[in-house]
Design a protein around this nucleic acid. Structure first.
Lengths: 140, 140
DNA sequence: GTAATACTTGACTATTTTAGTCGGGTATAT
DNA sequence: ATATACCCGACTAAAATAGTCAAGTATTAC
């Protein structure tokens, strides 16, 4: 079970942004330098964040990205969703409520994986961007 | 974030086994047929389960595998460990307690990912093989 | 008005991981 | 003997990941 870099970087970048005055555009170049994330990769990530209304963009010189909402109201679950990053634990089709993989009954561990998915999603649902900043022993 | 088939199959197979009298060896062939998992893949998986003292093997005709302990005492966390399946959320070295990626301080989201790892591991730590069988609306 | 900055977008690619398969064993019950 | 079933290392196709590249467009500063 591994978290991918895209969602991890997205959270890092947004956390970075939320340390600065909220309405100043922050360029990806700056984030790239501060967080050691490839600029081109960040561009990819921010396009998705923009499409999902988490940030807005300001073009041109001194442009950059701005958080669209208060860091308190941006849940990590939204960020993950924006990057199509789902928690996938089950192999069988979720929709097929009764049968799994063409069988008559649910596979023996189906409920377990469902439960795990809900459990993990719950973690992201209950964390906001702001929660990351409260931490004391953080420096950069 | 995705669970891999190896650990998923391992749990499925062990759950399958624990539905039968505990000291009868159960052949991988049977599990393979019942759970629709490739026999050769199961062999790979069970070698690891054996090495990690979760099952023991009985060779020869009518042989198979036997759970080495009571299903109540086999935690899912052990099964995952047996398959080298770790929950990995952080990119930076865990050991380097102070710095991340050569920097002086912990990366901004380091604590978050640590927390997530603990959270997920906790789920597996608190589930036993037996817990899977209690479920009512399960059939096969 | 032109240069520089910074976002925009789709396509492309190397690397890694995953999900298995293959081949050739060994042990044991009947 | 022979069939069954575990044992084990090596191999491989396919998918996912983690980016890069190229070729833009919009805006501001001068």
């Amino acid at each position: 079970m591994k978290l991918n870099t895209k969602s991890r970087y997205a959270v890092m970048a947004l956390a970075d942004m939320s340390k600065f005055p909220l309405n100043d555009p922050i360029s990806l170049r700056d984030i790239s330098l501060r967080q050691s994330i490839s600029l081109l990769y960040l561009e990819q990530i921010f396009l998705k964040l923009k499409k999902n209304d988490i940030v807005k963009s300001v073009r041109g010189t001194n442009g950059g990205y701005v958080l669209k909402r208060d860091p308190k109201s941006i849940k990590l679950s939204e960020i993950f969703q924006a990057l199509d990053q789902k928690v996938k634990t089950v192999g069988c089709k979720k929709e097929s409520k009764k049968g799994c993989n063409g069988k008559l009954a649910k596979c023996i561990t189906h409920e377990l994986w469902d439960e795990l998915e809900v459990y993990i999603n719950n973690f992201f649902e209950n964390k906001s961007l702001n929660d990351l900043l409260i931490n004391k022993n953080r420096i950069n």
